[in-house]
Design a protein around this nucleic acid. Structure first.
Length: 594
RNA sequence: GCCUUCGUAGCUCAGCAGGCAGAGCGACGCUCUCGUAAAGCGUAGGUCGCCGGUUCGAAUCCGGCCGAAGGCUCCA
């Protein structure tokens, strides 16, 4: 027998987040109500609130169309006007089993509930198995829109059937809804794929292959600046750079364990003369070869081996995205061979400090640290060695705390051979991405039987720290494009200044000015095309070039140029020597703004 | 990989109840020689993603493949 549950809620008294969650979850109910009306055979999945809105999953007799979406939305709006109350009731397992006997997904959920926690929610003629959290009636739903249809696996596993998911956005007021849509539009403008194309930084060609980034001259300049910078920082911190081949033999990866744990993500095997090779997905084994090629004393540790190396990972086709998710990428990688845990701690701390310095220089603020742990129950995905995992996780946690960084923890996010610290950020479109990771690895030293000679003269096993700092150049540049909206700081700008002669007779002087800047290794162009000055300035602005140097009769006379900063500010005429000095200083300090 | 949508000039897009492939911007050429975000005129540029089918006739309808976008799963 259904027992009503008093659940009237004073929405105004709730925190905004809670209120929105109730509105969004309630909207999902109303969506399901509409769907059952549209297709009575619909099998219901789940309909939770999410960031910015809600969704509901259905198994349907046919694919949904845009027209269906419009119809559903209209039908939902009608519900709003009717102000139908939501009623929660506690029911028995038998009642529930009877009610949802034709709803396999609901029955599956039901089988996992305790007898005393089976509740249902009814509004109008629609009843759903539900733990609660609604508004009082459908008039309190707020402003919403159905936005898209997508496939989604039941309970998030690709082994399960795929359902059709309807997404909606929902806010308290129409104004907030519109503000959100404005933000989405703004994010679209920042999208690195769009800006990368506009500014001719990189391109992707169907013929070269999906996920294979082609860096154009302007993008290559950014890439080169980042490479030089990070390598210099690493040299200052005692790293040694190496260069190793992009292929490895099958045996190498069998020994490292990648063959078993990572093969799905590798390019197909190349076979010749009875040998099998793969394009490397990681270069840890290569660096391990270097370490293992001679016997090391504890005095040489920590040994830091670094390489900006191309990695090849066969990402699923549906997952490729611009430059932020690709198949061939240049990773700022390093492996630090440590003598003991104490050394690991100080090395990881050093890496974290380097990260903080690098991200501060780049002006990145919106990122977070996460301690990514393994899953002791998943011996398929992770190396089976519980004490090793515990030791590694505790160690990383300790270092994060010592360095004083805020972080959260997540299970089942580790590398197959050990726990890691992930640095995560969000793309312009709001999708989370991992920028880099730092991993503690007790596993590969074991696999490869690595040793060093300790103070006691005996053999000991080293511990490897795997780390990145600026991520892959692809992902970092994608992030920076979006962060700067294409307005790179001077040191990274592909073209740092354009000299604009006012009329043809100033071309010679313009070339002279450009020559002086070039002598200071500044990247400068002369725009001596036949256009009017205004058009050239506009063109430079569209190309997001930091400085425009206008030269006419007055400037030629004075040995000067009129300086205009990206964005429009006019600094007036300055002597060329002063301009060179100003730009050089701005470049060398890696200033974020002029 | 799976679900949905999409693919026309370098870019943004129109054309699609089947009947000669278009516009704006860009590029190139000529004229103008100009003072801080678009001078004027002209020219070139497309096997309509690819392959096949239906049809007298396909950019348009159908099928397969490739690629992209959003989502799921996976991940730096």
């Amino acid at each position: 027998m259904a027992v009503p549950i008093e659940d009237h809620v004073d929405l105004e008294s709730l925190p905004k987040e809670e209120r929105l969650a109730r509105m969004r979850h309630s909207a999902a109910h109303v969506l399901a109500e509409a769907m059952v009306e549209l297709m009575p055979e619909a099998e219901l999945g789940i309909g939770p609130p999410i960031e910015n809105g809600f969704y509901y999953d259905f198994r349907l007799p046919r694919a949904l169309t845009e027209e269906d979406l419009k119809w559903l939305q209209k039908r939902m709006r009608k519900s709003l006007g009717r102000k139908v109350p939501f009623h929660m009731e506690a029911i028995t397992r038998e009642e529930a089993a009877e009610r949802w006997k034709d709803q396999p997904f609901k029955l599956e959920l039901l089988s996992e509930l305790d007898d005393d926690s089976i509740t249902q929610c009814t509004h109008a003629k629609f009843t759903d198995l539900c733990r609660g959290g609604h508004v009082n009636h459908t008039g309190e739903l707020g402003a919403f829109k159905l936005t898209s249809i997508a496939g989604a696996y039941w309970r998030g596993s690709e082994k399960n059937p795929q359902l059709q998911r309807v997404y909606g956005i929902l806010f308290e007021t129409e104004e907030e809804l519109q503000e959100y849509e404005r933000q989405v539009e703004e994010a679209r403008r920042r999208d690195h794929r769009r800006i990368g194309k506009d500014l001719k930084l990189f391109d992707l060609y169907e013929e070269v292959g999906p996920g294979h980034v082609v860096w154009l001259p302007a993008g290559t300049t950014i890439r080169r600046e980042l490479m030089r910078w990070i390598e210099d920082l690493e040299i200052e911190r005692g790293y040694q750079h190496v260069h190793t081949p992009v292929v490895g033999k099958r045996q190498l990866y069998e020994r490292s364990g990648h063959w078993d744990h990572y093969q799905d993500a590798m390019y197909p095997i190349m076979e010749r003369d009875g040998e099998e090779y793969v394009l490397r997905p990681m270069n840890c084994p290569h660096h391990i070869m270097i370490f293992d090629s001679e016997l090391h004393s504890y005095r040489e540790l920590p040994l830091r081996i670094a390489e900006l190396a191309d990695m090849h990972r066969w990402e699923k086709s549906g997952q490729l995205t611009g430059m932020s998710r690709v198949r061939i990428m240049t990773l700022n990688d390093a492996h630090i061979f440590c003598a003991d845990e104490q050394q690991v701690e100080s090395e990881v701390a050093g890496v974290l400090r380097l990260m903080e310095e690098v991200y501060a220089t780049l002006g990145l603020k919106d990122y977070s640290y996460r301690l990514s742990k393994g899953d002791p129950n998943d011996t398929e995905k992770y190396v089976d060695n519980p004490p090793m995992w515990e030791k590694g996780e505790a160690l990383l946690r300790r270092v994060l705390q010592d360095v004083g960084l805020e972080f959260d923890e997540a299970d089942g996010e580790a590398a197959f051979y050990g726990p890691k610290i992930d640095v995560n950020f969000k793309t312009a479109a709001g999708k989370p991405e991992t920028l880099v990771t730092v991993q503690v690895d007790f596993h590969l030293p074991e696999q490869f039987g690595l040793e060093y000679v300790g103070e006691d003269g005996g053999r000991h096993q080293p511990i490897i720290v795997h780390r990145g700092v600026i991520s892959t150049l692809e992902r970092m540049v994608a992030l920076l494009i979006e962060e700067y909206e294409g307005n790179f700081p001077l040191w990274l700008s592909p073209t740092q200044a354009v000299v604009v002669p006012i009329a043809d007779r100033h071309n010679d002087y313009a070339a002279e000015v450009a020559g002086k800047l070039r002598a200071a290794r500044l990247r400068v162009e002369v725009d001596d095309r036949g256009d009017r000055m205004n058009a050239k300035i506009r063109d430079a602005q569209m190309r997001k070039i930091p400085y425009v140097l206008v030269v006419g009769d007055r400037e030629a006379e004075a040995g000067a140029a009129a300086v205009r900063i990206r964005g429009g500010q006019d600094l007036g005429a300055m002597p060329i020597d002063d301009i060179v000095e100003k730009l050089r200083s701005e470049r060398d300090t890696k200033a974020l703004t002029p």
